[in-house]
Amino acid sequence: MNIFRLAGDMTHLLSILVLLLKIYATKSCSGVSRKTQELYAIVFLARYLDLFTDFISVYNTFMKIVFIASSLAIVWCIRVHPMVKRSYDKDLDTFRHYLLVAASFLLALFLHEKFTFLEIFWAFSIYLEAVAILPQLVLLQRSGNVDNLTGQYVFFLGAYRGLYILNWIYRYLTEPRFTRWIACVSGVVQTALYADFFYYYFISWKNNSKLKLPA
C-alpha cells in the first residue's frame, strides 16, 4: 500500500459519501444518473467475486464490502425509495448503458490476463468502470446547472482513478515485477474522460461561479 493508492481509495470513498449525503440530505437524485450508479454496482460485483475466497487484508475486504453495499444502496434509493424515485428524470438519463456493458464484456473475452472466469470478470469490471461515468457526464451536460454535491461527487470520482495512476507509476518504479497494463491503460482512458469536466469544474471554482457544462 502506498500513499497514492490510499489517497485514491479515500477519495473514492469520499465520492460515495458525498453522493449518499446529497441523496439523503435533499431526498432527491436530481442530476444523478441512475445508469451510472447501476454500472458501478455491476463493476463492484464483477470485480469482487473473490471477496470470500481471496483474503488480502482486513482493509481490502472491508472496502470491497463498503463499495458493493453503497453502490447497491444508491441504486435501490433511486429505483425504490418513493421520495428519491420521484426526482429521477428518466428523460434526461437516456444513455444506452447496456451497450457499454456488452462492449466491455466482449473486450474482456479477448483482452484479459488469464482466460479464467475470475480474470475475465475482473477485466470486464475494469473496462466497464472506465466508461461507467459516461451516462452521468451526458446527463450533466443536459441538465444545465449542476448542484454542488453532484459536482463534487463527479470530481472526487474522477480524481480517485487519477491518484491510482500515480500509484501504478510508483509501483512500477519500486516493484521489480509490477505490471498491470489492463488497469493502467483503462485507468488513463477513464481519467481522460473527465478532462473536460475537470476543466469546467476548475473554471467554476476559480470564478466562484456555478458549475456549468456546455451542451
Binding site: 493508492r5 473514492h12 473473490d50 488480502i56 481490502n60 470491497k64 490476463e113 498491470r180 488497469a183
Partner: peptide, 10 residues
Amino acid sequence: VKDGTSKDEL
C-alpha cells in the same frame, strides 16, 4: 505470495 496477477488493489 500470490503470482504477479494477484489482485491486491480495489
